[in-house]
Amino acid sequence: MAATGTASTVEHAFAASVSQIEPVASWVSQACKGLKVSEDAIGRLDICVNEVLANILSHGGSGALAAPIRMQLCVEQGLEDGAATLTISDSGVPFDATRCAVRPAAGTLADAQPGGLGVIMLRANADDLLYSYHEGENRLEITVRWQSP
């Protein structure tokens, strides 16, 4: 990151509900566009946001559904590159997507089992992932980077 860069931060909180996934994904994309994040990075962040929210809502338990999910988006712009870090905080059961095991790829369609793809997609699209659990709250930082054209 160039030393002469700028940083901007925006925040959002929303109910833990499937009906919020598309509005929240749209909020992230619009905020990123406004902060000049590259199209490729926005697309990768979109995938990460959807996979994390789907996981929280499906596997986070009653605690996850009882409290709002909070997001903080921080965008750093340098002269030649940039980085967007989205921090997602939820009150679900502890889950570390950076360390959990993933199922080996199935060799045939008959052997394929549903599930486990979300973590693969999250890891493939994020440049950095950082997880912590503190005082009953999961906190996942997702960073995507890009080079200026």
Binding site: I47, N50, E51, A112, G115, M121
Partner: peptide
């Protein structure tokens, strides 16, 4: 315009059933 893991799961489930 967007393909998430839940959509892929839908494809796999139905491809298996069809097979």
């Amino acid at each position: 315009t967007f393909l998430g893991s839940v959509g892929i799961r839908e494809l796999i489930t139905n491809a298996k059933a069809l097979q």
